[in-house]
Amino acid sequence: MKTLVVLTTSALVLASGAMAAETPIQEVDVQTDLTAIENPAAARHFASLGSDLQADILARLDPARLTTEGGSKIDVKIDALELASTWANVHDISQSKLTGTVSIISETDNSKFDNYTLTVAYPEVIAILPPGTDVAALTADSKLYYDAMIDTFAEHVVDHLK
């Protein structure tokens, strides 16, 4: 009986250790369908959103998590309609948001699957702006606000990994 309890306890400790392991990441892919944005100025403003967000996610990952094989894929699909809406309200920044579907896909570890919709909105974004930023002067097309929105979205993606 003692042997069984020790083996069971050992198995539970080993299993909980395996579950706590960080998800290794092999690939990050961010897709934005800018063809859905009819306003040319908006399309230009968001033209590098996919590569900017991908670079920010990769920069936030611990290098020890990155692998060349057997890791999970982070797949982000940005909602172009929300981008268009954000641009339409360019002077009412409180209505701006960045929304996307985030999928974590693994071909080798079934416990690493995840899928959720992530929305980053004005209150979260202004919280990370540098002290002294004149929030009243910001518009959704400002570089500072764009960078803060990307940073906040990337931070949430990385923090949400299992």
Rank of each mutant, 00 (worst) to 15 (best):
P24S: 07
Q54I: 01
T32E: 03
D141K: 14
M1D: 10
I128V: 15
D79P: 05
L12M: 11
H91L: 12
H91G: 05
N89E: 11
D159N: 14
K77T: 14
P40H: 08
G71V: 05
D109N: 15
A84W: 09
L12R: 01
T23A: 12
S85V: 02
K77Y: 07
M149W: 05
F46N: 08
A21H: 07
A121L: 02
T23L: 13
L58W: 01
L61P: 04
I78Q: 05
K112A: 06
A41C: 01
L129I: 13
G100N: 04
L98P: 03
S142H: 15
E69P: 00
V30Q: 04
T119A: 12
A43S: 14
I105C: 03
E82Q: 10
L58H: 00
N89H: 13
G71F: 09
D75G: 04
V158Q: 08
P40I: 05
L58I: 13
E107Y: 06
D52V: 04
Q31A: 12
S51L: 04
A36M: 12
D92I: 13
V76D: 07
P63E: 09
H156N: 12
V102P: 01
L144F: 02
L58S: 05
D147R: 14
Q26W: 01
L12S: 04
S85G: 11
G100I: 03
V6A: 11
W87R: 05
N89R: 06
K97M: 06
V90C: 03
L144V: 15
S48I: 00
L161S: 04
S106C: 09
S16C: 09
D141M: 14
L118D: 01
M1E: 08
G17L: 13
F113S: 11
L138F: 12
R60L: 07
I150N: 04
T99L: 09
E155C: 00
F46R: 10
P131E: 15
L4A: 14
E22P: 00
L81M: 10
G17C: 09
K143T: 15
L49K: 07
I126C: 13
K77F: 11
G132I: 12
A36Y: 05
L61M: 06
T119D: 05
I37A: 11
A148K: 06
M1H: 08
A41V: 11
I104G: 02
S85A: 14
A121S: 15
A41E: 14
A42V: 08
V90E: 13
A127R: 15
